[in-house]
Simulated assay, not measured.
Amino acid sequence: MLFFYCFKRHLSSKRALALCAILLCVLLLGGCSPAPEDTTQAPKVVDSYVINGQVSGSMTRLSGRVTAAEKTTLSFEVPGRIETLTTDVGETFSAGEPLVQLDKQRYRLVLGQREAELREATAALNEKQQDHQRHATLAEKGYVSQARLDTVKAALESARSRQQSATAALDLAQRDLNLSTLSAPYDGSVSQRLAEPSERVGANQPVLEVISDRRGFDVEGSVPETLIDTLVTGSRHTVTLPALGNTELDATLRHLGSQPRSSNDYPLILHLAEAPEGIRSGMTAQIQLSLPANSQAPGVILPMTALVYGEGERRHVLRVRDDMILEAVPVEVLALGEKQVEVSGELSAGERIVAKGTEFVRPGQSVSLLGQGPQRFH
């Protein structure tokens, strides 16, 4: 229409005709432009979980590990080269049994030198004692001055000190010779060997790790901070060992840590009343805590994979809203199981959360549920 208007009004003007022709080309080209593409991203498909309901004090299973109630690391107090080390990992021993021996030649030579020094110091002391006795007799008759007697007495005291020093040096040499043999402190077994024969070791360098058989076994684990106030030292609980046919064992809470580990979990140690046959240090254990009624705040049971760890040990889950948009809900962990976790937070029965693959989605993202809705094929 614009073209014909220009043509009618300015028929005699070449300039107007050219302008109208350009406008017509622009309109024609605009009409041939492709339609804009749909850049809307398809919703992410997620595996979800519907919250069943609330529980109170029912999630009390914890993971732990069996350890020896009495264990220690053995090392020499003197340096040297290992001459004998035949004890290996898992082998048992009796209290006082030699486990490792250093080369004793050097310590025997030092002992012989100290014995000779002691004999020499003892002979010198005897000589000074006799000299002092003679001078004391002469001093009584007035043949020796008091100053001379004092000089002889001082020499006697010096000889006595040298003899005492030589005696102490001999005792130390004998002690070092004895310490070149590493003996078992109690009945037990070797848990780790940290040195080999012919190896030179320094003083206090670990050589063997051993565990005792006389005080049984403990189970070490971690308990959430929400349960700290409900546990009492000396209380009885149950421990299950999967490696021994899930045998249930009575255990007593022996220690409850005052400093948290990672994720605000506190260490606890349970002592087993009886050690079943076949138990070994390092075995995994399941701890069933016996908590007082209503001792735990109500929580909900969720899959372990639903937890999302943020900065500063903060945790949350991703709730699926009715409009299929994800939102983060902060939660506090009450108890941990093998595959489930009990948490408290603003969650209700019937709500849906992301159960798996939380690392691939984020709050505010649009999602669709696995197994529901139209399938997309590319």
Rank of each mutant, 00 (worst) to 15 (best):
E342D: 08
V152D: 02
I22N: 07
R193T: 05
A328C: 06
V55I: 13
R175I: 08
V219G: 01
Q205C: 08
P36E: 14
V50D: 11
I325Q: 12
A69K: 01
L241A: 00
T305N: 05
V152A: 10
D171M: 05
D213G: 03
V210Q: 01
A124S: 11
E351F: 01
T84G: 00
E342Q: 13
L307K: 04
G310A: 03
T73D: 02
S33P: 06
G371R: 12
L102N: 06
V317Q: 05
S161E: 14
A243L: 14
D131N: 11
T92A: 10
S158Q: 07
T238P: 02
G188H: 11
S158G: 05
E117R: 11
R106D: 14
V361Y: 10
Q288M: 13
A243E: 13
G31R: 13
C32G: 14
N52A: 15
Q365M: 15
E209C: 07
V320Q: 02
S344A: 13
R215A: 15
E115V: 01
L227D: 06
F93M: 03
A16R: 00
P36Y: 02
V341D: 12
N264E: 08
A42F: 06
I82F: 00
G257P: 07
H255F: 14
E127A: 13
I22P: 09
S368E: 12
N52W: 03
D150I: 10
L138M: 08
K14A: 12
T86H: 13
L194E: 10
K356D: 12
G373Q: 02
R15Y: 01
R236I: 12
K44D: 15
D250V: 01
P260C: 13
L291I: 14
N178E: 13
N246T: 07
T39P: 00
C25I: 15
T84Q: 03
G216E: 02
G345R: 09
T122V: 07
V45F: 00
L289P: 05
V219C: 08
A147K: 04
A285W: 03
A136M: 13
R352T: 15
D150R: 10
S145R: 06
